[in-house]
Design a protein around this nucleic acid. Structure first.
Lengths: 198, 198
DNA sequence: CGACTAAACGGACTGCGGTCCGCTTTCATT
DNA sequence: AATGAAAGCGGACCGCAGTCCGTTTAGTCG
């Protein structure tokens, strides 16, 4: 009756077998290298598997899908960025007045999104990753709006402020219509100003 | 030296051969039926071809790609909608004050987007179709903002107002977070109010 | 009406994402 | 060190989007 499963302990990261960890590492490296060489869109799962020296099935067990793999790649930089928002130097990090932080957030987000645009597109709307990223930015903006003293439907207002920073829209404006990034940022700042009523 | 090409005449729709026209028709019907039956995501190009009684190559010659086919399907309803914006009854059509028209536009766009969400997603960012749709709405909103007397970077302001009406965002809010459509619409109206400073 | 050509056709073929299942490795236990 | 079983592995296999090219057909001109 009494089963002796190790009782996961929550802090211990779910003990991954040694070979599994090694392969995950190798796969991430191989994928990153291939993305750097040929662009994310041109990377195939077979290539990644071959380059990492593992079978194709292994890639899919580790990362679920092509989108999952791209998402994992993306997460590396995304996590760093989140850290600099949470605890980096102001005005992006804490310490500056909330409206300044919000402006810095927008600027930084535009740059980071454009820089990883291809990867983000390839990662698609893969469940957990994208949702985590979404909910982090949404929460942060909501918090800043509250700090500023904005009243109204904050969750939806935050979404409205974030929407023009999504890849398809930024791509359209910057890469297709060739608006300068500075102008896009100015316009976003203007939008924020109107929303917070200043 | 003098070649007697018929000089396309621009009004005559590029004379499509009779059989080609017949097949295009059959393919659109077949595709629409399959979408209605199994949902857009589940429709395969082979099925469409078989149902229309033509070869697969024909489907791709007519519609370029899967996304192109979905885009063509979408265009049918999109065109009707555009007509009702341009020349339908107020407040969506002309005749009402511009701010009322803008509000009606938002409401209508939310509904139409949610209704065709699957098709829109399947149609992806297929060049001409999506771009045409995008530029129609952008132009219309820009026009209404100007009528209202809004000052600022109108092209980008228009984009900012349209961004929260895109499928991924609406989907997230309505289908995942389960906000009622009315609340989403209220929040969008509030956003518009802040942008036009009222 | 017959001949000619450009357009259209169709289905075999390719490449990729994703699955499946029999075999191998790790590691806890004794 | 031996052993047992769960976790991991790999590559053959499948379905689908998209291409290619030899064959057929619509429309035109003498």
């Amino acid at each position: 009756m009494s089963d002796h499963r190790p009782l996961p302990l929550l802090g211990a990261p779910q003990t991954e077998r040694r070979d599994a960890a090694r392969n995950r590492e190798a796969l991430m490296c191989a994928a990153a290298a291939l993305v750097a060489e040929h662009g994310a869109a041109a990377v195939t799962m077979d290539e990644v598997a071959a380059r990492a020296g593992v079978g194709k099935g292994t890639v899919f067990r580790r990362f679920e899908s092509r989108e999952g793999l791209m998402g994992a790649l993306l997460n590396q930089s995304e996590t760093d960025w989140q850290a600099s928002v949470i605890s980096g130097p102001p005005p992006l990090g804490p310490g500056a007045p909330p409206l300044d932080r919000l402006r810095a957030f927008g600027r930084s987000r535009i740059e980071v999104t454009l820089q990883h645009a291809e990867l983000i597109r390839e990662a698609g709307r893969v469940g957990p990753r994208s949702y985590a990223a979404y909910s982090f930015t949404a929460m942060h903006v909501r918090y800043l709006l509250a700090e500023i003293g904005v009243t109204g439907d904050l969750p939806l207002l935050a979404t409205a402020i974030l929407a023009p920073l999504e890849v398809p829209i930024l791509d359209q404006q910057v890469r297709i219509e060739e608006f300068p990034v500075d102008r896009v940022y100015e316009a976003w700042t203007d939008l924020v100003g109107r929303v917070v009523q200043r």
